[in-house]
Amino acid sequence: MIFAIVAVALALSQVELDLPPLDAGKTTASVTGSSLIEQAFTNQQSDVQVEGSGTVTKLLADDLKGSRHQRFIITLASNRTLLIAHNIDLAPRIDALAVGDTVYFYGEYEWNQRGGVLHWTHHDPRGHHVDGWLRHHNRVYQ
């Protein structure tokens, strides 16, 4: 019963904020996002769709080779760090991003020895890949 009330409250708050809707599958992924990333890291898996959140610990220079990407590092609840590579040719840049901010994400995890990279945090203009997103200060970037 409590879970149903929380789910309804989340759904209503997202309508008011114009956030991507949560469905049962994404709610589960959100709760276990850090665990899914830990599992993918341990198993050296890539191409894993994950949802979660982390705290910005470092802002990096944009990657300007090929498609431009805003890059920053977040720390997850598990203390694992994750590089976010957000395509700013396809999605808006997060201009107000600062160290210490919380960022929520839905994208594709790629394994590397440093903790991994999250990309596909944007819509796919060709419609072949699951759309991802970043959320910062209740604004969605996709």
Rank of each mutant, 00 (worst) to 15 (best):
T102Y: 00
V48I: 15
D101Q: 01
D101M: 03
W120E: 15
P20Q: 11
R135N: 10
V48F: 03
G66F: 08
L83W: 02
R71F: 03
H137G: 05
G107D: 08
N79R: 10
I5T: 13
A40W: 06
V117K: 08
L59G: 03
S78C: 05
P20K: 05
R126C: 09
V130W: 06
S78I: 03
A77N: 11
I73D: 04
S13R: 14
I2Q: 14
A29R: 11
T55Y: 07
P21K: 12
V130N: 08
F41S: 07
R68V: 13
S46E: 02
G52T: 07
L60A: 08
A96C: 01
L59I: 12
Q49E: 10
Y141E: 13
H129F: 07
S13F: 10
K26F: 01
F3G: 07
F3T: 14
W133L: 11
I94N: 00
L22A: 07
H136M: 08
S13W: 09
L36E: 05
Y141K: 08
A85G: 09
A11Q: 01
R126A: 11
D131C: 05
D47F: 12
K26Y: 10
R71Q: 14
G116S: 07
W111Q: 01
V103I: 14
Y104K: 12
V56M: 00
A9S: 14
A85T: 01
A7M: 11
T57D: 01
T55P: 04
E110T: 10
R93M: 10
A61N: 15
A11T: 14
A91P: 06
A91S: 09
T55F: 04
A11N: 09
Q142I: 02
F72W: 03
D101Y: 07
V56Q: 02
F105I: 03
V31H: 02
K65N: 04
L134P: 10
W133P: 11
H136T: 02
R93C: 07
T42H: 04
N87E: 05
R114H: 09
L10W: 14
P92Q: 04
F105M: 01
A61G: 11
F72E: 05
L76I: 13
G54Q: 02
G100A: 06
D18T: 13
L76G: 10
W111K: 06
P92M: 06
F3D: 13
K26Q: 15
G115K: 02
D18G: 11
I73L: 15
G115R: 02
I5L: 15
Q70H: 03
V56A: 00
G25S: 12
H136R: 00
Q70S: 02
Q39T: 10
L12K: 09
V103R: 06
G107A: 10
A91T: 08
L76F: 03
R93K: 15
Y141V: 02
H137C: 04
L82H: 00
V8M: 13
L82W: 03
A98E: 15
I73Y: 07
H128T: 11
H136P: 06
